[in-house]
Simulated assay, not measured.
Amino acid sequence: MSAEVKVLSASTRTNLEALKHHMKKLGFKYYEEKDGWVTFGTHLMMNGEGVAPDDCISISVRFMDVHADLWDFDLISKLPEVKQAILDFYEAEGIEE
Rank of each mutant, 00 (worst) to 15 (best):
Thr12Ala: 06
Gly48Trp: 08
Ala10Gln: 08
Ser11Val: 10
Leu19Arg: 09
Ser77Arg: 14
Gly94Tyr: 01
Leu16Trp: 11
Lys6Trp: 15
Tyr90Ile: 02
Phe73Glu: 02
Leu79Asn: 01
Arg62Thr: 03
Asp35Trp: 14
Lys34Thr: 03
Ile86Phe: 00
Trp37Gln: 02
Gly27His: 04
Val5His: 07
Thr14Gly: 13
Ser2Trp: 09
Gly48His: 04
Pro80Thr: 06
Leu26Trp: 04
Phe89Thr: 05
Ala52Trp: 12
Ile59Leu: 07
Ile59Trp: 06
Leu8Gln: 03
Phe40Trp: 12
Glu91Pro: 00
Asp55Leu: 11
Leu79Asp: 00
Leu16Tyr: 05
Asp88Arg: 13
Val82Trp: 14
Lys25Leu: 15
Pro53Gly: 10
Ala10Thr: 06
Ile59Phe: 12
Val51Lys: 09
Pro80Trp: 15
Trp71Asn: 05
Gly36Trp: 10
Leu79Phe: 12
Glu97Leu: 09
Val66Trp: 02
Leu16Ser: 13
Leu8His: 15
Leu79Arg: 09
Phe89Asn: 06
Val51Pro: 01
Met45Arg: 04
Met45Ile: 11
Gly50Phe: 03
Ser60Pro: 12
Glu97Lys: 13
Val7His: 08
Met64Asn: 08
Glu33Lys: 03
Met1Gln: 12
Ala92Glu: 08
Ile86Ser: 00
Val38Leu: 04
Phe89Glu: 04
Thr39Pro: 00
Glu33Tyr: 07
Leu79Trp: 10
His21Lys: 07
Thr42Glu: 09
Asp72Ser: 12
Gly94Met: 01
Trp37Leu: 09
Lys20Gly: 06
Thr12Arg: 04
Trp37Met: 12
Glu32Met: 12
Asn47Gln: 15
Arg62Ser: 11
Met46Glu: 05
Ala52Met: 14
Val5Asp: 13
Ala10Tyr: 05
Ser60Glu: 08
Val5Glu: 09
Asp74Tyr: 15
Lys78Glu: 14
Lys29Ser: 12
Leu19Gln: 13
Glu96Lys: 00
Glu96Ala: 00
Glu32Tyr: 01
Lys25Asp: 15
Arg13His: 06
Gln84Tyr: 02
Val38Phe: 01
Asn15Thr: 08
Lys24Ile: 06
Trp37Glu: 02
Leu70Tyr: 06
Leu79Ser: 03
Met1Glu: 12
Glu4Gly: 11
Trp37Val: 03
Ser60Trp: 08
Pro53His: 03
Lys25Gln: 09
Asp65Val: 05
Pro80Gln: 14
Val82Gln: 07
Val82Asn: 02
Phe63Val: 10
Phe73Pro: 11
Thr12His: 09
Ile57His: 02
Gly50Pro: 06
Lys20Leu: 04
Lys34Asp: 02
Phe28Gly: 09
Arg62Gly: 14
Glu49Cys: 07
Ser60Ile: 07
His67Ala: 14
Ser9Ile: 05
Lys25Thr: 03
Ile76Thr: 01
His67Ile: 11
Glu91Asp: 06
Leu16Lys: 09
His21Gly: 12
Ser2His: 03
Phe73His: 13
Ala68Val: 04
Asp54Met: 05
Pro80Leu: 15
Gly36Val: 05
Gln84Ser: 14
Phe63Asn: 07
Ser2Pro: 02
Gly94Ser: 01
Phe89Arg: 02
Phe40Gln: 05
Glu96Met: 00
Phe89Asp: 02
Lys34Phe: 09
Phe63Cys: 10
Glu96Val: 00
Ile86Met: 02
Cys56Leu: 15
Glu81Phe: 05
Ser58Thr: 12
Val51Tyr: 10
Val66Tyr: 03
Phe63Gln: 07
Met46Gly: 07
Thr42Ala: 12
Gln84Arg: 10
Ile76Asn: 00
His22Ala: 11
